[in-house]
Design a binder for these strands. Sequence first.
DNA 1: TTTGAAGTATTAACAGTGTTAAGTATCTTT
DNA 2: AAAGATACTTAACACTGTTAATACTTCAAA
Lengths: 218, 218
Amino acid sequence: MQKNNNMAISDRKLREKEDLKKRILEAAKALFLEKGFEATSMRNIAERVEFSPTTLYLYYKDKNDIVYALHQEGFKLLAQQFKTVAGIEHPYERMKTMARIYLQFAEENPDFYELMFVRQGPILHVQKHNSDDWEEGSRTYNVLYENVIECQKEGLFKNLLPHNVSLIIWSTLHGMCTLHMHMRLDCVKFEDDYEVVPEKSRPEYIYESFISLLERLK
Amino acid sequence: MQKNNNMAISDRKLREKEDLKKRILEAAKALFLEKGFEATSMRNIAERVEFSPTTLYLYYKDKNDIVYALHQEGFKLLAQQFKTVAGIEHPYERMKTMARIYLQFAEENPDFYELMFVRQGPILHVQKHNSDDWEEGSRTYNVLYENVIECQKEGLFKNLLPHNVSLIIWSTLHGMCTLHMHMRLDCVKFEDDYEVVPEKSRPEYIYESFISLLERLK
DNA sequence: TTTGAAGTATTAACAGTGTTAAGTATCTTT
DNA sequence: AAAGATACTTAACACTGTTAATACTTCAAA
């Protein structure tokens, strides 16, 4: 009886601890999406969960620890978006849809994207704790790789190594996303712009360019 | 006589002022290359030129102003590397060499590359002062674009819009550079790695992948 | 029931950041 | 010699991430 009671209580404590840990992450995420990465500080997060700044350090080792957890959230979100493509039977069509989802994700969640694929914070955390295996990234890459393999079974991407194709596709998508996000595309002015197509939005233009690459690789 | 003397003195003063401005930039560059971007502060730079931190603000509006000047230095360096390709007559060979130089530049000067194509500091400076025309980037892009046009005159890159090809090439190179720099490639572990080629270094592997893309676009 | 030990949260502080306002020399001009 | 411009510095503001020391609460054993 006594024991059961104790266990119940310590269970509740554990639950409450987990709960606060989650609330800290939620607060961090909210601030992050409101004001961007650079602008959210430990003190900001602490204020929002109504605890002292130092309390956060009882739940997360340091800021990178929070940043890593957020980066994981980002991957969960991306995986969720990717779920719908499982129904597409032909690997090439699936590839095209995955590309569209990837580009759209970056467009709609630039701060998450930055954390997942650009910032060094999360990757430093990986190197300190997981002995150089970036699970989230590896999983995502392998989804792409498997898809390339399937395409090759259908006779596509002939005479190319699958890792080669995967690297090209990922790099191109990543390059397009980041050049766009970091405003390196809109600030470029063409000397000779007779073929400008102003009715197309930048993301549409990017997607079409990528598709024309894919068609060529095919 | 008096006037000449005065002019000479004020000339010297002006020269000294310009000189200090340059010395500040040199100090910034040195620190930047030694310790990286994140780790160099205004106070660091000031200490190195042996002036008070606030003096820097008499020569540069703010830190972004210095960062923008450094970003320009980076472009000068890249342009210098590119100079050698002018002698290559065939546009496709020229393109391949340009790609190699671009990748090598990013590999050897990751901090400069970051400033030129990733960080938002310099581009913010552009938006505040130059009404959205990123000269350095525009010039670099147009070099690529002109090269694509020349290739098409030789019958290459058929049925593709030149801006499309340019975007694909730049994005792929940029994506490869940044994924590598930001350690997103080395931390990925393959589930199925029967075709791993360990005797090749990452930069070599990247270059070869890019060339196989180019051959396919051709 | 008291005592001591965990566990949890806080205050104060450190060492740093970019940046500005105010003050101080020095040198030029009237 | 007095007034003014120029060049520079000191002091300060409002932040940042993070740690050490301290308090408060809860709980188990003596």
